[in-house]
Structure formats: structure tokens, C-alpha cells
Design a protein around this nucleic acid. Structure first.
Lengths: 224, 224
DNA sequence: ACAAAAGTGTTAAGTGTACACCCATGT
DNA sequence: ACATGGGTGTACACTTAACACTTTTGT
């Protein structure tokens, strides 16, 4: 039975934090901001901020992403994955944060300092710098969820442009799982899922040109 | 980057709701309270309430469970699984609720009306009565999570007393999954996991007595 | 012709699933 | 002896993982 009104309790602040991922230089990167204020001034942190009164949680996530990093593009995937509410997690008071996982397509590189941060950068997701507050555990949990989503949904496609080659797709999987995969097994498995259609085009590069694929017109997989 | 202080925003209320499950009469039941106040007076709802300032989320979950249903016992399992924050979900204002999944052992039957509710009862989890607010979707999601946890962790054991028979354990699985399971395959799978040890005792009943088992001394499985 | 990256099949092991009869006890 | 529920094994389909060479292109 949800709340009694009016509240007989001290108020609790509600925030969102966003772990936004993208591929850069063949590596999985997470979008971090360098804090310009105490506490944790000059430390890296996930973009985040308080939720406004009439604002949906996912809207708040998009807003802080935009204002703190300048990222314009709609994420291809946005999903809350855990709520962090430990009493001592923020020295400024009782703040409960709904953590979100976002995936941005390759190409969304440009980030600009915004708000009261010193800057924003894409940094290694698996080997991040020290992070403010409890953001390291938020990031760790985001990575776990991202890895889980690779298998169920086909989240890897969201990291790539409309057309892509199988080696590129395999690279995304390897970057997310942080381990190498067998080429033949990977191709077999992906093609068997029937979610890819060859575009007919090929991508020329250093070696043999690769077939380009795009995602077949079909629905996405189930949620958790 | 977590919140800027002081907040330039309307405050948002933070609550917890609890979907507490137990077995009764061979059926999976969820603990519901009948609301005594508007809105949704006389409708069934999940136990829930506002989080207090210095209180951890799981503490709040235990508190509302206790005060609204009289359930004393510590749940064998307590886990947050999703945060429901849609703007219109509560007509009284902007309330964001962190939903929790709880498992109570068989035997925790007694519930008493508490607080401002008309009463509390264990009702069918798969075929619940109409629920207040968005509690039906919260319950549905709790069920999905519970089913998921059956495979990964061995959450079914938490529904049973210290010693139990394999048919009893299978009954818990079937009640949670809401479908029958093959006896031989079930036993094979469970015994292969090596998490059960025969207690030597047997339970006499109508037919052939069943071997009693208890959980082996070993750790629990990983989180999601 | 060489370097570089794409592409291609087979085998073995393990896992999941379907399925039917005998056993131990109480009445 | 019969009713009731407990306990047992095997065969097939499918999935997963390991493994090395050939093909296509540019230089």
C-alpha cells in the first residue's frame, strides 16, 4: 500500500546516474565527467543529477546526459538497472539514485564540457580511473548488465551504424565481454539467429573485403 | 556526477513496495493488504510506504512489511528488482517506488491487520485480485524475477523449512513457474547441483515415505 | 608473391527433454 | 490386495566448444 500523506518523514533526494557506453578505438568506453565542485572535485564521475518534479526517470537521465556532456543524440538503448540508496553514499545528504544504462551508437564522439563540470570524456569502461562516490560499483553493475543484455537482447547492434561487417560486430562483443571469441562459432551463432540480412555491399579495407550486413526487420528480444 | 546542492527542483517522494511470496496449500501466494483509505479504498495492494531519512531501502521494506501485515519473520530473501517512477502512477503526487521481492519460509502464515489497512492476506500470486495503483505491473515483474532467480540462485529452498523432500521442492518450482515439471529430470538436475544432502530421515505420509534432504553447506549463486 | 583480413566445416562433449514402470508404505 | 505417492534409467535432439586452412583483395 503506497504512501500515507502527508509524509511524517524527512525527505529523501532522488537522482539518476547514467552509465553511457560506446565503442572507441576498438574498446568499450564509458562517458565520464570530471567534477568541478566539492566533494570529489577533479575526480571522474558518471553523469547524474536530481530528478525534477514532473519528470520521468528516463527523461531525467537524458537531460543530465545532455547538460553535463553535451551529447545530443538519443541513446539507442536506455534502461534503468539498479537503485543505489545506501545512507552514506553521498556526503551531502540522503540521495537515492536510480542508475541507468545507455548505449550510444559509434560516431557519437563529440562531447563538450557542460554545467559545472570541467569536461567530459570517453574512458575505458573495463579499466576506468578512480571514480567519485560509489560510482565504481554503479559502473561495475552496469557492465554486468550490459554483458547480460548481449545474449538476451541483441544490444551489440546498438553500438554500430546501420550497416556493419561481422568482424565489426564480433569486435563489439569482444569489447563488452573483455575476452576473445572464436570467429567461426560467433558467425554461426549470429547468422543462425536470423536477425541479420546481407546488404549486398562490401566494405573494402586492408585485406579481403567484408560483407556488409544490416539488422533484419524484426522485433527486439524480451526484457529481463 | 551526482546532485547539485541545494536542489533547484520540486521534491519527489521516495517509497518502497514489497512483493512478499510464500507457499500456501501448494500454491504460490503473495502477501496483500486491503487499503483502508482513499484512493483505492478497499482495493488490494502490495505493502508499501515512504522511506525515512536515515533508513536504508531494505530496512524500509522490512518495516512496512511488519507494520502493515504484522509479519515478524525476517524474509529469507530480500532484493530490490525495479524502480517504478512514472509520473502519474500515484494520484497523490510524485512518488517513486523501489519495488522489492521477498521470500518468506513456509510456516509464516499469521498475518494481522496493522496500520491503516483493513487487513492482510496471502492471495494467489498468479491469479491475484485487481490491485491498486500500478501494483499489478509491479507484481508481474516480481514474478518474472522470482522465476529467473529459481534457476540462478536456488531461491526455491527459501520457501521450505530446513528439511524437505524432493517432491516438496518440485512443488515449489512448479508453483513458481506455474507449470508441471518432469519428476525424473527435476531430481536429476537438482541432485547434480550437489546443493542437497540427504538427512537420513524420511517423511511418512500416505504413500511411500520420502527421503528428507537439507541444503548442503555451500555458498549461494551469483547475483544478476 | 606477399601481407592482411575475411570466410568456411567437422567433431566431440555436454545438456535438456521425453517417456513408463517398479517400490514402499498405510489401510 | 489395493491405493497412494516416491523413486528410478535410457535414448534422442540439440547446443556448445575446440580447432586450421583457403579465399579475396591491395601493394
Amino acid at each position: 500500500m503506497t504512501p500515507t500523506f502527508p509524509a511524517d518523514v524527512t525527505q529523501v533526494g532522488l537522482a539518476v546516474d547514467v552509465a553511457a557506453f560506446a565503442m572507441h578505438a576498438g574498446e568499450l568506453r564509458v562517458l565520464l565527467v570530471q567534477r568541478g565542485e566539492l566533494p570529489h572535485a577533479r575526480d571522474w564521475a558518471l553523469p547524474g543529477g536530481l530528478v525534477r518534479g514532473g519528470e520521468e526517470l528516463h527523461e531525467a537521465a537524458l537531460r543530465v546526459l545532455h547538460t553535463e556532456t553535451g551529447v545530443e543524440l538519443e541513446p539507442r538503448h536506455l534502461e534503468q538497472f539498479h537503485t543505489f540508496g545506501e545512507v552514506g553514499r553521498d556526503p551531502r545528504g540522503r540521495i537515492v539514485s536510480v542508475a541507468h544504462l545507455a548505449v550510444l551508437p559509434h560516431g557519437t564522439v563529440e562531447v563538450s564540457s557542460g554545467g559545472h563540470t570541467l569536461g567530459a570524456e570517453w574512458l575505458s569502461a573495463h579499466r576506468p580511473p578512480p571514480l567519485a562516490f560509489d560510482h565504481r560499483s554503479i559502473l561495475d553493475r552496469a557492465l554486468t548488465r550490459l554483458q547480460l543484455r548481449l545474449e538476451y537482447a541483441n544490444l551489440a547492434l546498438e553500438f554500430l551504424p546501420d550497416t556493419f561487417t561481422l568482424p565489426e560486430l564480433q569486435g563489439v562483443h569482444e569489447a563488452i565481454l573483455d575476452r576473445p571469441l572464436d570467429k567461426r562459432n560467433f558467425r554461426k551463432r549470429l547468422l543462425a539467429q536470423g536477425i541479420l540480412t546481407p546488404s549486398g555491399e562490401r566494405r573494402v579495407g586492408v585485406g579481403r573485403p567484408a560483407q556488409l550486413y544490416r539488422r533484419a526487420k524484426s522485433a527486439r528480444a524480451a526484457a529481463l
